[in-house]
């Protein structure tokens, strides 16, 4: 197995992880602060958007998706879309009852 295909030649420097961690903590605190301000129905939407941004960092950097075979990222996106589709179709029932 050649190392490039295995994605092992890529060593992520320690610094990158620390930057990402700082970003993640900042996003968490932003999310908590925003809850204190009343934004009405937008509160949950914004909290979920921030969570999605945080998870994309975790997936891409911590979980190495950015440096792996593209097949992995495509599969992850596919699974997330599938889950969203199932939630949407289930809600088709509840939203219209």
């Amino acid at each position: 197995m050649n190392p490039i295909e295995n994605g092992k030649n890529h060593i992520i420097p320690y610094k990158t992880f620390l930057y990402v961690l700082a970003g993640l903590i900042a996003l968490t605190l932003t999310s908590v602060t925003l809850t204190r301000i009343s934004l009405g129905t937008l509160t949950v939407t914004i909290a979920l958007i921030i969570a999605a941004v945080k998870s994309s960092f975790v997936l891409r950097i911590f979980m190495h998706l950015k440096f792996e075979n593209k097949m992995f990222s495509r599969a992850v996106i596919g699974v997330i879309m599938l889950l969203c589709a199932v939630i949407t179709i289930t809600l088709l029932d509840y939203l219209n009852r």
């Binding site: 599938l82 589709a85 199932v86 179709i89 088709l92 029932d93 509840y94 939203l95 219209n96 009852r97």
Partner: peptide, 21 residues
């Protein structure tokens, strides 16, 4: 096949939209 589970529940009382989807 992943998105058609509801046809087991046609008489269970789902919403109309869900039924015809």
């Amino acid at each position: 096949g992943y998105f058609i589970w509801g046809h087991h529940m046609f008489t269970s009382g789902m919403s109309g939209t869900a039924l015809y989807t």
